[in-house]
Amino acid sequence: MAKSALLKSSIAKKYWMALTGLFLCLFLVGHLAGNLQLIFGTPLQFNEYALFMTTNPAVKILSYVTYISILFHVVDGFLLTIQNRKARPVGYAKTNPGANSSFSSRNMAVLGTLVLIFIATHMTNFWAKMHFTTMPLQTITIDNGGQVSSFYITSGWGQDRFINVNQVDGENLIIEGNGFYYTKPIKVQFAEGYKDLHKITMDFFRSKEKLFGVIPNEGLFFTIFYVLSMAVLGFHLWHGFQSAFQSLGLNSPKWTPTIHFIGKAFAVLVPFLFAIIPLYIHFTK
């Protein structure tokens, strides 16, 4: 009985690329659904969602699977590319690759690397800030008969949604009642307010600062960078989606045309919707 080589063999590597790739496609759908709240939801909904995503244990597990998938996809892809380069030590003087294969299919490694660069910058800009830096909390400004005050929004239940910003003072605070909210003493931690990812996002794409002190209007720059990155992702998915099914052995004359159609629709639609978001933010107020 020959030893199977589920990690080492060429075909096994394909399985892992396919499985991790398809999982990441699922992730994209979830991520897109959440992000679309930047357009279709209120800031509160978005920040609630952000809090949910960073605290829910099930999501936590999923997020780790996602990190591992990305890592595996990258490492595996890297190994495959190295081996593939080695498989042809002397190249052709004249090539005509367009005659028999698509641009995407031939450039998965390059496209993938670009996507990786995007993911790195994207995570630095949002994910890392969310996890490792002190974020401003979401506030709400209420004009109460000429008396303007800002409030944090908390994750509590029922009516205890608003806490007067001015009254936050250490661990204990007493809220003077005016019939608007709770009157009894409550222990509130500073961090329990919603981190205002929404604001961070809006600021990011609308910033008029100079990037690295050189590039003017960094918000526009980021918007363009994000839109281009989504185009790259689209090309990556254009081949990757249906390719995963082929790698897993799911190819039959009956189903393959459908899979190809779904793959192409996915590759266009998902990155397109993602790209809409920065455009929307940048060009609206």
Binding site: K8, K13, A87, N100, S102
Partner: peptide, 14 residues
């Protein structure tokens, strides 16, 4: 096949 040094399939279809 792997021992012979062939590359890996990336489903380009060429």
């Amino acid at each position: 096949m792997d021992e012979e040094g062939f590359g890996n399939c990336t489903n380009t279809g060429a």
